[in-house]
Design a protein around this nucleic acid. Structure first.
Lengths: 98, 98
DNA sequence: TGTACATTTCGATTTAGATCGATATAATAA
DNA sequence: TTATTATATCGATCTAAATCGAAATGTACA
């Protein structure tokens, strides 16, 4: 997880996803009431980060595997959002071990 | 600082330095009452990490510049110890931003 | 002063990470 | 079924990190 955070773009993505409505267009993220609130689709994150779509796709997979993000496929879109449980667990172990 | 922590050896060094007396020989670290208590010399850290001394020297410089460690030269030895202020500041900003 | 030892710096090599474009896969819509 | 769009994967290239041994620097001491 530390390695996932050690890249500046990946770090920023995690910040953007704290407030999707502030950083992404209304069509890019899933709204209140849906079954994956706060999730943002890959293309929107790629556009915002100004990196190739393939790069960002790989980043997101990596961040999910490390426990920073969680994802859900919805039709042709894959939505990613913060995995708050994973992040909090990381924070705790970080405070203890460091 | 995140990048400094993203290397496993560097991370372990920081852990070792939490309890120098448990991880290093009595001659390797500075004892209570001296002017740099808890400091461990480069050679001892290099030996423990099983990497070339030149590698570890570079690591320690990097960790100091990032704010994780502080150092003091004492004769021919350079002693390194945790920079608790820097580490705590990092923890705080980490909890807030993440 | 010159030898011994600790540390740092340097140059070279190997490995890992970043990044892209092209292609493959998956889902939708005509 | 075919064309379109979204995402994921692949192969190639370039850059950064890891790592080593050798040489340079700094310090102590005979």
């Amino acid at each position: 997880m530390i390695k996932a955070l050690s890249n500046e773009t990946r770090f920023r993505i995690l910040e953007w996803l704290k407030e999707p409505e502030k950083h992404f267009g209304a069509l890019a993220y899933m709204h209140q009431g849906c079954d994956f609130e706060g999730g943002v689709c890959v293309g929107a994150i790629a556009e915002k980060s100004e990196l190739a779509q393939s790069v960002v796709s790989g980043y997101l997979v990596k961040m999910q595997k490390s426990g920073l993000l969680e994802s859900k496929r919805h039709g042709q879109f894959t939505y990613y959002r913060r995995n708050e449980d994973g992040i909090n667990a990381f924070k705790e172990s970080f405070l203890k071990e460091l």
